[in-house]
Design a binder for these strands. Structure first.
Length: 778
RNA sequence: UGGGGGAUCGUCUAACGGCAGGACUGCGGCCUUUGGAGCCGUCAAUCGGGGUUCGAAUCCCUGUCCCCCAGCCA
């Protein structure tokens, strides 16, 4: 289900799709869905982008909408057309199509400028002469409000004049900026008069020298969305604070609904990789990797060169899940998707990475036997085979021979037999060593009766791959491992950087490998499985006929672990035990209530009275006396239904959570009506669950509980005779569950309860139902 | 310390207030001319403490921890 591009119900996949489906159902977007993928062309696309791409393009496709590709190119100093081209190439390779919807924020500069002028005229933007340091200082800190710039109250005329001259190029870089006039004291730093335009006398890769003022992200992005009539502007969590500003600009420009709305999700982090373009650029520039397309890079270009397929990346991106929790995905999940896609795409061939010579002494000297070897294993439903030459001298993998093998070593060792894949069973008769005592050659004999596919049923436990010594081709093989040694490369000691976490062994180059000759004339970038080794791809840049070079895409899963019986204990690193340590005084809600109460004798009086006279718990009394409004509502309700503990209970546990920002006074019903609802529960007229349902309705549109009960027939069902047939029906419908319950799975009682309650629309007396259920199930 | 978010198996992610499920990983078995694949099985979680409710991962209170915001980057 997770890795499934052909979804069943998109709305159920994640919270963003649920929002889109809901917006469509309520016609909030005029029936349209338009998303966008908005990269800044200052680097290469990476696996993190892939998640966003899959989300935005996926939503568009699933809901019959469109997804725009928009280059967010508002910063001339870092952007380049080469990145624009690379990004489009990578996007297409991944299999995404934006049709005609290719856009550039830099195409909107005129409109953005006109809108800025409009804001100035409305008194909502001004030119500021402060330096960047001064602006920073004036902005305040997260705990202290900022203060207005001395230029904040310039006249509209002066602002207009200055802004026009900014555009005309009269001022130096950084001399002036245009800022939105919002609120220097806002608790949201993003709202403290954000900068909209800066002066940069820089060459823009698309607009040339036409502009010397450039809009900043917050000013450009939402407005670009509005211009393109984007319905759902999906970005990552770190832009949460920007949403208020996003909406402020749209409001200030009077852009009516349906208009774009921003939603945030958690960006992807992958173990053993870095995900920032800045850090990737550093890896490239400082030569830690060979380029943006180094197969160790988690760029799309790197993964392509590594041999990953577009499908595997898409499946992974769709499989990681979209939520609002910061998370870090394990590398194994990516590798799983790569292997599972390649399994049925990569033909099997044999390549010996680290050769060891084997002479088959009872095989004729000059004979070359061409064996027919299927490209696909029995469980991949594909046809095709190639001829593989068998000769007296062959190479096998050094790892496949051990002079003193441990138990369960199903390969070759002195006196032991092994099957050569697609060929014969051989026995190791003699081990030849050099002066240093290193094994340099094996003398073996083969059993001519055991040719692969023949009817002879002699079986040996192990099968190894091999190539002919004389007929095989030399090859260079590059083995890649993770680029970093730490799951989170940024998690390094004080003073260290992610570069200190670089894996010195992330690349191993094997120059003496030998591969079977069938691959000689395959097209560039062909993928294979080298049997028993892994998936490989002919390197698109360096491999050529006569000079074959292969990159290891991913190794095969290997469950054989010699001499390692104990799996590593799993790290248990939850901070279960949180010290009940320091009693810091923080601005918590309970403190706030206490402070308010202590400053108001009336509230103290109430608190005491609620405790003494009404017998309320400390908690209930506290909650009702943190302000005047709560107690007022409480006491007014008491006048109708003098049951303080019930009222307090329902107020604190049910009403509180349903209260909007404006509190009790804004409720569309009176304390008396609320009291009436509580009384209905106390008098056993309705069940508590029904009361909550009614409360939902009252909060939404007011109404008298008594009338709602009668109109909708919500009285509690206390009649056993009425309940019994319903219970019996539920039990009859679920014989397996009944058996399981009787077998000891008593947790199922909740299931039966739920079924019965649903069948009665929540009206049944739950205690009664439970009692009857237990009787029936006994 | 202000504001905005968040916390479910080792990891990622589900669950109208009603059986805590799935995937990856691990472990075990079956199968196998790849120690691959496949199949079967299995270990494994609701951050802590109170409360409401017949019933709480979910609602209320409270504590703890984590992330984001003080670029003229995006």
């Amino acid at each position: 289900m997770a890795n499934n591009e052909t979804n069943e119900n998109p709305a159920g996949r994640d919270f963003i799709r649920a929002i889109v489906a809901d917006d469509l159902a309520h016609n909030r977007t005029g029936g349209r869905v338009a998303t966008r993928f908005p990269p800044e062309p200052n680097g290469y696309l990476h696996i993190g982008h892939a998640k966003s791409i899959a989300l935005n393009f996926g939503i568009a496709e699933e809901f019959g909408g469109v997804c725009h590709l928009r280059f967010d190119d508002t910063n001339p100093e870092t952007e380049d057309v080469k990145y624009v081209e690379a990004m489009q190439r990578d996007l297409r390779w991944l299999g995404y199509d934006w049709g005609d919807h290719l856009y550039f924020a830099s195409d909107y500069f005129e409109q953005l400028y006109d809108w800025a002028v409009q804001l100035i005229k409305d008194g909502k933007a001004y030119v500021d002469d402060l330096t960047d340091e001064e602006i920073r200082a004036y902005r305040g800190t997260v705990t202290e409000p900022g203060k207005p710039s001395p230029y904040r109250d310039r006249s509209v005329e002066e602002n207009l004049d200055l802004f026009a001259r900014m555009r005309a190029g009269e001022f130096e870089d950084g001399a002036r900026v245009l800022r939105a006039r919002i609120d220097l004291a806002s608790p949201n730093m993003k709202m403290r008069d954000p900068v909209m335009y800066r002066i940069r006398h820089a060459h823009h890769y698309r607009r040339g020298d036409e502009w010397c003022i450039f809009p900043l992200y917050d000013w450009a992005h939402g407005q670009s969305d509005a211009i393109e009539r984007i319905t759902h502007s999906i970005c990552t969590l770190e832009f949460e604070n920007n949403r208020e500003l996003y909406d402020w600009f749209l409001d200030a420009l009077d852009i009516p609904e349906p208009r774009p709305h921003q939603y945030e999700f958690a960006r992807l982090f992958l173990d053993y990789t870095v995900m920032s373009k800045r850090k990737m650029l550093q890896l490239v520039n400082e030569g830690h990797v060979s380029g943006w397309d180094d197969p160790r890079m988690s760029t799309v270009a790197g993964m392509r060169r590594r041999g990953y397929t577009p499908e595997s990346i898409r499946n992974f991106a769709n499989g990681v899940g979209v939520a609002r929790v910061n998370s870090r995905v394990q590398f194994e999940l990516l590798e799983y998707h790569v292997r599972s896609d390649l399994n049925h795409k990569a033909p099997r061939v044999m390549c010996v990475l680290r050769p060891l010579k084997v002479v088959i002494e009872n095989y004729p000297e000059d004979k070359v036997e061409w064996l027919d070897a299927p490209y696909w294993p029995h469980d991949v439903p594909k046809e095709g085979s190639r001829p593989v030459p068998f000769t007296r001298e062959i190479f096998i993998e050094r790892d496949d021979f051990m002079e003193n093998p441990p138990r369960k070593f199903y390969r070759l060792s002195p006196g032991k037999e092994v099957r050569l894949r697609h060929a014969y069973i051989i026995r190791c008769d003699e081990v030849v060593k050099d002066k240093q005592g290193e094994v340099v050659e094996l003398r073996c004999s083969y059993d001519p009766e055991t040719k692969s596919g023949s009817s002879v049923q002699r079986r040996v436990k192990g099968t190894i791959h091999w190539v002919s010594a004389s007929e095989s081709l030399p090859a260079e093989v590059r083995l890649y491992d993770r680029l970093f040694i730490k799951p989170n490369p940024d998690d390094v000691a004080e003073g260290a950087t992610f570069l200190d976490a670089l894996n010195p062994n992330s690349l191993e180059v094997l120059t003496g490998s030998r591969i079977e000759p069938s691959v000689a004339s395959d097209p560039p970038a062909s993928r294979y499985q080298f049997e028993r080794q892994g998936y490989f791809i002919a390197d698109a840049v360096d491999s050529r006929p006569g000079g074959l070079v292969f990159n290891r895409t991913v190794a095969l899963r290997d469950t054989w672990r010699p001499g390692k019986p104990e799996p590593e204990p799993r790290p248990k690193m939850k901070t279960k035990e949180q010290g009940a340590s320091a009693e810091r005084t923080r601005g918590t809600a309970s403190d706030a209530r206490r402070r308010v109460r202590e400053a108001n004798p009336e509230l103290i009086r109430r608190y005491e009275r609620y405790r003494q006279e009404f017998g309320l718990s400390e908690l209930d009394a506290d909650l009702l006396t943190g302000d005047l409004a709560s107690g007022d509502f409480f006491e007014a309700a008491l006048a109708t239904h003098p049951a303080p503990r019930s009222i307090a209970n329902f107020m604190n546990n049910e009403l509180l959570g349903r209260l909007g920002n404006s509190g009790f006074p804004a409720l569309p019903f009176s304390p008396a009506e609320f009291a009436e609802l509580v009384a209905l529960v106390d008098e056993d007229v309705i069940s508590t669950n029904i009361a909550k349902e009614i409360l939902d309705e009252m909060v939404a549109k007011g109404g008298r509980p008594g009338e709602i009960v009668e109109q909708r027939g919500l009285r509690r069902i206390d009649d056993s005779e009425a309940l019994r047939p319903i219970i019996d029906q539920v039990l009859a419908d679920n014989p397996d569950k009944v058996a399981a319950y009787r077998g000891g799975k008593t947790g199922l009682l909740g299931f039966f309860m739920g079924q019965v309650m649903r069948a009665t629309q929540g009206k049944a007396n739950p205690q009664l139902v439970q009692q009857l259920l237990k009787e029936r199930l006994a």
